[in-house]
Design a protein around this nucleic acid. Structure first.
Lengths: 374, 374
DNA sequence: CTGAAAGCGCTAACAA
DNA sequence: TTGTTAGCGCTTTCAG
C-alpha cells in the first residue's frame, strides 16, 4: 500500500533540514550580517577579500536569502496575482503564458488564481492576494466589475485589466478592438458573397460580446444590409453552448450561409452542429471564429478567425503594473511593441481610456463563397 | 496617448495607502497586539467583550493580517509551487486546475511555474520557489530528473511528482498506468479487427512513451501478432509532430489501418495527415489518442482515447505534500477517492513505489472496424 | 484572560 | 569599508 492509514508515519515526513540564514553565513565568514547582506545584494561595495570570503561561505552553505524576510523588510513581495476566468478555457493559458513570461523577465512570481466562473471563489482569491501583499493584480476575467465592483473600488493594491475594461472604474485596461473584430469577420463573409448571415454570441453581460455585435452591425450596414435583420442566438462561449445555439440558429434561419461566432470555441460547436444537420463547412455554411487560439488551426476545417494580440496584452499588463507600483526596476527597455491607443481622450474622472489593440483577420478553411452566389 | 513617454508621471502611480497593521488595531481597541493576534486567529479564547471590540475595530479598519509577516514568524508560507512542462499544452491546465482546487480547499496558494520546455527556465523557477520558501513543490514535468536530478537530490523542500516518476530518486509520485493504457488502446484496435497497426510515439527520453509502447507490445503479443513488427515513428507530443510522424508512418506502412498515438495532440496531427493523404478516419484508418483532454471530444472525428484521472492526481499531490510537510492542517477528511497502488513493494532505498492510477478506454468516433475485415 | 517581550531573517540608517 | 542597531508585522512563551 502506498497510502498508509496511520496519520503521518515518521518516514512520511520530509526531513526539515532548515535553510541557512544570513547569520549562519555571517558567523562562518567572520563578518556582520549587514556585510553579508551588502555583498549578496551588491548594493554597496565590499573589500574584495571580504566579498570573496562571504561569497565562498554562502556558496558552501547553499545560502539563499529568504524572500519572505526580505518581503517583510522591503514591503514588496515581487509577486503578482493573476486572476483568470477559467484556466481550462484554452484562451486563458495564452494569457497566463504571456503574463508569466513578462513577470519572469523582471523576476516576479505569479500567483495563479482560477476563478472557475465562481464569484465566491473569485472573492476568496482577491482577499488571498491582498493578504499575501502581492505587488499588483492582473485580472483577466471580464465582468468582474459587476460581481466585485465594490472590492475593486476600495482595493488596496494596483490592479490592471486584461482583455476587458471596467466601464465605471478608473482601472488601466488593455483589450482588443472588439468592434473592429466583429466588423472584420462580417466584412470577410460579405466579400465572399454571403448575404444571409447569423451570429452566435455570448451572454449579454459580456461587454465584448456587445462590442463585437456592434461591429457586425457596422459591416452589415456598410454592405447595404439591414443590421436589424441579423439573427442572433446566445451561446456560452464554450463548445457546448455554441453547438446548442447553432442548432437553434439553423431552425430560425434555415437558409443561412454564414455565421460569425463570439469565439473559436463557439465556432467549433457550430461546426459540430452543422455537421449534425448534414451541412458542410464551408461548402454550405461559412463560419468565422474569434481569438485565434492554437486549437483553431488544428480542428477540421481550420477556422477562419480574428486574432488578438494576447501576448502583447500580458506584456503590457506586467509593465503597466510595474509603473503603478513605481519601483523603477526594469528589465524594462523597449520590447518593440507598439500599441495604438484609441479613445477620445476626454476620459473625465475615469482615468486614461483603455488601450485598444488592433485585431486581425486570419483566413483559414472554414469560410468560402456561398454555393449559389447571387 | 495612453502610454506616456515621461517615466511614471505622478498620476500613474497607485496611491500607496498602507494596509493597517496589527498595532493599529491593538491601539484603537485599547489592547495589546498579542490579544489582537489571539482574537483574530481564535487560538486562545478572549473575554467576549474584548473579542467583540477587537473584531469591530479590525472590521472597521479593514484589517487583513499580513501573510508575509505570518510566514516569517510561522516558518511556513502556505504556498505551493507547481512546475509544469508547458501551460499551453492543453493537458496541463487540467492538472493546474486540479492542483489549484485542492490547494484552495486548504487555503494554500499556488505559484505557477511554466517550464516552457526550457531547462534553464526550469532551474530558475526551482530556485525561485526555494527562495520564496514554498512549503512544497509539485512537479508535473516529466523528465525533470535528467535535467535537474542533482537539484532534486539535494532539494530542501518536499517535492511530489505528478504524471511521471523519477526512476532514481525516492520522490513520491503519482501517475497513470501507462503500460495498461498502451495495451487497452491496442486491444481496442485488435478487437475491431485491425491487424496492421502503427504507433506514433513521443521522444524516447520520455518514460511514459516507453511504457505505453510496452503496453502496445503486450497487446500485440496477446493478439498473436509479432510486437517486433510494429512500426513506430517518433512525434513530439504536439500536433505538428504528430502530423509529420503520421506522414512518415504512411510512407513506411501504406497498408496501415490502425494507429495508436502517444497522446491526443499527436492523434489530432495524425488525423490531419491522413486527410491530407486522402484517407478517411475512421473509415480507412482508425486512430486512438491518449489523455482524453477536453479537446479530444470536440475535434472531428471525436477521438477514441485513453482517459487519465488527472484531477485525482492533483488532489493526491496536494494531500501528499500536506503529509510530508507534517502540518496537520486538514480540510482533509475523505474526499472519497480510492486509489489503487500497484508495485511490488520491494522498493529498496527508493521509498514507496509510485501510485499508479488505472486508466480507461473512452471509445468515440475515431475508431471503427477496418474496411476489409479479415 | 491579558500584556510585555523576544524573535522569525532580512535591510538600512547611522556610526565608527 | 564595516559593525551596531532598529524594526518590518506577526505569534508565542512567560508572567501576572
Amino acid at each position: 500500500m502506498a497510502t498508509s492509514a496511520r496519520p503521518q508515519p515518521p518516514d512520511l515526513r520530509f526531513d526539515p533540514r532548515p535553510e541557512p540564514t544570513i547569520r549562519d553565513v555571517a558567523r562562518q565568514a567572520g563578518v556582520s550580517t549587514a556585510t553579508v547582506s551588502r555583498v549578496i545584494s551588491g548594493s554597496v561595495a565590499a573589500r574584495p577579500q571580504t566579498r570573496a570570503r562571504v561569497l565562498a561561505v554562502a556558496e558552501a552553505l547553499g545560502y539563499r536569502p529568504s524572500a519572505v524576510a526580505r518581503s517583510l523588510k522591503l514591503r514588496t513581495t515581487r509577486t503578482l496575482g493573476l486572476l483568470v476566468t477559467d484556466i481550462q478555457n484554452p484562451y486563458y493559458p495564452e494569457i497566463v503564458r504571456a503574463v508569466e513570461d513578462a513577470a519572469l523577465e523582471r523576476n516576479l512570481a505569479v500567483l495563479l488564481c482560477n476563478g472557475a466562473d465562481d464569484p465566491a471563489r473569485e472573492e476568496t482569491y482577491l482577499e488571498l492576494l491582498v493578504d499575501r501583499r502581492v505587488d499588483g493584480i492582473i485580472i483577466a476575467s471580464s465582468g468582474l466589475q459587476e460581481r466585485h465592483g465594490a472590492w475593486l473600488a476600495r482595493r488596496s493594491v494596483p490592479v490592471v485589466l486584461v482583455n476587458w475594461a471596467a466601464p465605471d472604474l478608473p482601472l488601466p485596461a488593455i483589450l482588443g478592438d472588439n468592434r473592429a473584430g466583429g466588423r472584420l469577420a462580417t466584412e470577410h463573409l460579405l466579400s465572399l458573397g454571403h448575404r444571409r448571415i447569423g451570429h452566435l454570441s455570448a451572454p449579454a453581460r459580456n461587454a465584448a460580446a456587445a462590442e463585437r455585435l456592434g461591429g457586425i452591425g457596422d459591416a452589415l450596414a456598410g454592405g447595404g444590409l439591414d443590421p436589424g435583420s441579423l439573427v442572433v442566438v446566445e451561446g456560452d462561449g464554450q463548445v457546448a453552448g455554441g453547438e446548442r445555439a447553432a442548432l437553434e440558429l439553423l431552425e430560425r434561419m434555415p437558409e443561412i450561409t454564414g455565421i460569425v461566432c463570439y469565439n473559436d470555441l463557439t465556432a467549433i460547436g457550430a461546426v459540430r452542429a452543422l455537421r449534425a444537420r448534414g451541412r458542410q463547412v464551408p461548402a454550405d455554411v461559412s463560419i468565422v471564429g474569434y481569438d485565434d487560439i492554437a486549437l483553431s488551426a488544428w480542428v477540421d476545417p481550420p477556422l477562419t478567425t480574428i486574432a488578438q494580440r494576447t501576448s502583447e496584452m500580458g506584456r503590457w499588463a506586467v509593465r503597466r503594473l510595474g509603473e503603478l507600483i513605481g519601483r523603477a526596476d526594469g528589465a524594462a527597455s523597449g520590447d518593440g511593441s507598439r500599441m495604438e491607443a484609441t479613445g477620445d481622450g476626454v476620459s473625465g474622472s475615469l482615468g486614461p481610456p483603455p488601450v485598444i489593440l488592433p485585431v486581425e483577420l486570419r483566413v483559414r478553411a472554414s469560410t468560402a463563397a456561398p454555393r449559389e452566389s447571387p
